[in-house]
Write a protein that binds this DNA or RNA. Structure first.
Length: 205
DNA sequence: CAATAGATCATCT
DNA sequence: GATGATCTATTGC
């Protein structure tokens, strides 16, 4: 992971070292997409970070998933085409970013839980009012959205291109994936649907 | 260190 | 009217 170890890239160099992910590649079951998104890079507003922690949320059987209650004004995007952004407000304070999985009509999404900051670190720190170590800049779902300036204004945006995008390295990094139960839920607590890059310092606590 | 309380509001019952 | 896919500050050992 020599490439990913280099932090504070210029935004342009990071764009050049990565390539677009076809929208079609997102249309897989949520657990599979959760694995695929590890090691990819999320870009927004002159800041970027590598995804190091994800959680899969399934369809109707997964009572921890917002989509298990059916289509509502908030959850409708989860039932739409894959590769789009599901963003919601949690605890009245923080925004959480999800990537829609599965084919259109089938619910499923992946919560982005942590990033390793790569580009635009000063701006990320400023948005977060953060003076601690870089690894604490975006090591949580509410922290990463704030660090990258992501809000519900980006709800429903496609992520293969445009202002909020996820790209993959042209040279794929090599890493081990660890699987654990999901965090912060009260239903389906034991399901092994949380995926992390083993040993990465920016994984949440 | 670990445990706990508080912030704060859109969504759903 | 209750709750929540969180985070920070504070208290107490």
């Amino acid at each position: 992971m020599a490439r990913a170890d280099k932090s504070n890239w210029s935004y342009a160099a990071l764009k050049a070292a990565t390539e677009r992910i076809p929208l079609h590649d997102f249309a897989v079951p949520a657990p599979e997409l959760a694995r695929k998104l590890l090691g990819t890079v999320l870009f927004h507003e002159q800041t970027a970070g590598m995804i190091v922690e994800t959680e899969a949320y399934l369809g109707t059987d997964d009572l921890a998933a917002h989509s298990s209650r059916g289509i509502t004004e908030r959850t409708k995007v989860i039932f739409g085409p894959a590769g789009h952004a599901y963003i919601y407000l949690i605890y009245g304070i923080y925004e959480c970013l999800n990537v829609v999985a599965c084919d259109e009509g089938t619910p499923g999404c992946v919560l982005i839980r942590a990033l390793e900051p790569l580009g635009g670190l000063p701006l990320m720190a400023q948005r977060r009012q953060w003076k601690g170590p870089v690894k604490g800049l975006a090591n949580g779902p509410g922290k990463l959205t704030r660090a990258l300036g992501i809000t519900r204004e980006q709800y429903g945006l496609r992520l293969d291109r445009g202002p909020l995008t996820i790209r993959q390295w042209r040279e794929k990094p090599n890493f081990e994936i660890a699987v654990t139960p999901r965090i912060g839920i009260s239903q389906c607590v034991d399901w092994p649907l949380r995926f992390v890059i083993a040993g990465n310092a920016s994984v949440s606590k």
